[in-house]
Nucleic acid binder design. Structure first.
Length: 156
DNA sequence: GCCAACGTTGGC
DNA sequence: GCCAACGTTGGC
């Protein structure tokens, strides 16, 4: 059984369309700089897990589609690159502080499941995404929540 | 652009 | 270990 996740991305930076247009429709998920998110990604995210791709900080916030984990956590090289916005001087080759996984495009929803609709569904009240003040960029999704959200996808 | 909420840093 | 200051996230 796969685990289920939700990962946020700003579509102005990297959208689900960008993922679909990558070589092999696969890209590494760099730039995670939050320990809670890192720990989940590093310790609990496994090959074959499914991911809701969430568009944040944009006009239409919500879940835009599905991706899947195709490579488990390995060091995030952008932390070692002084020219990267994600550079972290405290991360080293021998002792990497930040990690990333590779994900592959699976499906784009014809219409996204909006944050507003997610918030309105009482069955999703425990999802960190809809909780007040939550800023987690990677979060687990329970199987029941996953199925509930899938049932909310317009036209699916 | 605003700002509430949160995470991190660093002095003590 | 406390906590004030600061930086970031992300919805609105």
């Amino acid at each position: 059984m796969p685990n289920y996740w939700l990962m946020k991305s700003e579509p102005g930076v990297f959208s689900i369309d960008d993922l679909a247009n990558c070589p092999n429709q696969t890209e590494h998920w760099d730039g995670v700089r939050n320990y809670q998110a890192r720990n989940m990604m590093r310790d609990q995210m496994h090959k074959g897990d499914l991911v809701f791709f969430y568009h944040s900080s944009c006009k239409n916030t919500g879940i835009a589609g599905i991706a899947k984990v195709v490579k488990e956590a390995y060091p995030d090289h952008t932390a070692l690159d002084p020219d990267s916005a994600y550079f972290d001087p405290k991360s080293t080759v021998d002792n990497p502080r930040w990690f990333m996984v590779d994900i592959r495009f699976v499906e784009k929803f014809t219409h996204l499941v909006s944050l507003q609709h997610l918030k309105e569904n009482p069955l999703l009240k425990d999802l960190p995404l809809v909780q007040r003040g939550s800023r987690l960029s990677i979060m687990p999704v329970a199987e029941k929540q996953w199925n509930e959200i899938l049932a909310m996808v317009p036209g699916r």
